[in-house]
Amino acid sequence: MRHLRRHHDMGGLDAGPVDHDHGGALAHDYAPWEKKVDAILRLLSSSGVMTVDELRRGIEELGPGIYDELSYYERWIASVTNILLEKGVIETDELGRRMAEIEAGWGHTP
């Protein structure tokens, strides 16, 4: 039986050198919004709204194009949002409205 490998399943494939950070000298800080994504996932996970496995499933379902295009925490929030929409915890129109409101008010917060 042929093993069908999905794009996230990269163990054992060829790849270039590991761009390690020489003990942290080149490490960047996580941006505040990236930590917020992590915090949201942990709170959703501890309250039983979604699991880490669902996060991973959501990331895998982004598809090869988007998977490679997005940064790490962009994949996370895209997955979290899709799963919250799928579960009916939030709705597409309210999400769109809220994003537009935040964008319109950006830089004007007191």
Binding site: W33, I40, I90
Partner: peptide, 12 residues
């Protein structure tokens, strides 16, 4: 995606 993060946090 930053907007999405803030919006999702606010809605939750």
């Amino acid at each position: 995606y930053q907007l999405m993060t803030e919006a999702v946090a606010g809605l939750l």
